[in-house]
């Protein structure tokens, strides 16, 4: 057997995903690109989660076209407050990709009754265009808030906040363990890939499939026993709890906590306003 792992040769998207996979950090969760001094970063995890999720729900509910620029401006404002680099935002916004670009390209010509432009058999409909504008604006705004939340909150703090919201411990332990195994599996995968590439195997579907199946099987077998030992060790150290539940980093002074809940109140107010005025 001398096959090579085929990821890097196929698509730019695959390469980007692979690069992201390589950059996973097990202890910090999603990469923390925000300035620790930014007010969004200092927003306590639980109120931040509630506030941003309320805004996301409100953004997803907006139907009126006149309110779309408002949600765009809000998202840009929050991104600016987070201190995250604008270049990162542009990169992340490109990720949702294929499905959305397909819909945006197809819907105006496929859906609707009111013809606004015709060229031969190509017909542009108002209803389709309207829907594309809604989908595009909501997507950009929600994706921006998603990334603000995920980039400014370490995973353990996010899991602790979710736990306080009543998400079952078992599910959170699963998430935490998965995150720990991700780097190990990712690096083993890279090693296998490199070893196979050095053997000079040319990728093709007929040869890739059995090879990849064996590769994944080997990866599972190698990691399984180790994962059991790691899990037992974690339980020994943590008296039955796998996840080291943490409070948010930094000093939770009463003023900081008060400001955090104040910001959440503001976000809930804005979300309520959007739900009342922006929906059809």
């Amino acid at each position: 057997m001398g096959p090579v792992f085929p990821v890097k040769r196929h698509t730019k998207c695959a390469t980007a995903d692979q690069a992201r996979l390589e950059s996973l950090q097990p202890e910090t969760g999603p990469s923390l690109s925000a300035k620790p001094s930014s007010c969004i970063y200092r927003w306590r995890p639980l109120p931040k989660l509630l506030g941003l999720m309320a805004l996301i729900v409100a953004f997803a509910s907006v139907q009126r076209l006149t309110w779309l620029p408002v949600i765009g401006a809000l998202a840009i404002g929050i991104w600016g407050l987070s201190g995250l680099p604008w270049s990162l935002g542009l990169r992340r916004l490109a990720l949702p990709g294929l499905l959305v670009s397909g819909l945006i390209g197809l819907l105006p010509f496929w859906m609707g009754e009111t013809v606004i432009w015709r060229w031969g058999s190509l017909v542009l409909y108002w209803e389709g265009l309207e829907m594309v504008l809604r989908i595009g604006a909501r997507l950009l705004a929600i994706v921006a808030l998603n990334w603000v939340l995920l980039e400014t909150t370490p995973l353990t703090e996010l899991l602790a906040a979710l736990r306080r919201l009543g998400i079952p411990d078992l599910l959170l332990e699963l998430a935490w363990l998965t995150h720990r195994y991700l780097q190990e599996l990712g690096s083993q995968w890279q090693q296998m890939q490199r070893a196979a590439q050095l053997r000079g195997w040319q990728p093709s579907l007929r040869q890739d499939l059995p090879f990849l199946a064996t590769l994944l099987g080997t990866l599972l077998v190698r990691s399984y026993e180790r994962s059991e030992r790691v899990y037992q060790a974690l339980r020994l150290r943590g008296c039955g709890q796998v996840v080291p539940w943490v409070t948010a980093a930094g000093d939770p002074t009463p003023s900081c906590v008060g400001l955090s809940w104040g910001a959440t109140g503001l976000a809930l107010g804005v979300a309520g306003l959007l739900l009342r005025l922006g929906t059809a």
């Binding site: 792992f5 085929p6 990821v7 196929h10 698509t11 998207c13 695959a14 995903d17 692979q18 996979l21 699963l174 363990l177 998965t178 720990r180 195994y181 991700l182 190990e184 599996l185 990712g186 995968w189 990728p203 093709s204 579907l205 890739d208 499939l209 990849l212 994944l216 990866l219 599972l220 990691s223 399984y224 994962s227």
Partner: peptide, 17 residues
């Protein structure tokens, strides 16, 4: 479950022609 979830995640980055 966590191991397989991680494998599921890693495998989602594999693109087959």
């Amino acid at each position: 479950a966590a191991l397989l979830t991680a494998a599921f995640f890693v495998a989602s980055s594999i693109y087959l022609p």
